[in-house]
Design a protein around this nucleic acid. Structure first.
Lengths: 99, 99
DNA sequence: ATAAACAAGTTTGTAATACAAACCGGTTTG
DNA sequence: CAAACCGGTTTGTATTACAAACTTGTTTAT
């Protein structure tokens, strides 16, 4: 018990590897479009789509739909809440894994 | 893609917070019994039991059943494979979260 | 013109889970 | 000897993560 338990309460939204990767990328770029995330993560389109939706539902990512010419484009950006949750997650994990 | 993908391949057996906690404790003690793990992790008996079974099935933990007087006792120890997997996991996550 | 291929995503189906709650075989207590 | 307790295990359920199928629109070929 004691100060072990925090690890049991890590944010599962971020803990999922695919989403951790997405959040990491979005925390560095101000905006990223779907296709960039697609190649950068190596996820399938289906899975990238569902993970982004979940991040959006949670309020960690904001999704803006525009067009690049006639072709649809989905722009993604991390929200302040997302960035905060991401930093908190990193601190928790780092602290736990240090010895 | 590139050197992001390793994070997508983290060992899910260890990545699960409850098991990460169990493995962390077992990596420090040589042996731990069920009740020690129970209080130390704060998990329910049911969940501790199933997580230990999964770790055992994976070959990361060895479980020895004995008696303390007339009362059953379950002793748990990390295996070499388990320790190796645990260290690998830590390295992967640490490396990913740096930067 | 219209069919076939392509682009950019979304939705659906399924199998694998994590957790809680119920259960179980023995032991001690009232 | 019944009830409570110990030390767990098994079962039931709701959530998931992923793959595969689908959708809406655009471009290319015929």
């Amino acid at each position: 018990m004691k100060d072990n338990q925090p690890i049991l309460e890590v944010d599962r939204i971020i803990h999922e590897p695919a989403r951790l990767l997405i959040m990491t990328i979005l925390s560095m770029a101000e905006k990223a479009d779907f296709l960039f995330l697609l190649t950068e993560t190596g996820l399938t389109r289906g899975n990238l789509s569902t993970h982004l939706s979940k991040l959006e539902d949670t309020g960690y990512v904001e999704i803006e739909k525009t067009y690049r010419g006639k072709i649809p484009q989905t722009l993604c950006a991390i929200t302040p809440a997302g960035l905060e949750a991401f930093e908190k997650y990193r601190k928790q994990i780092n602290k736990f894994l240090k010895r």
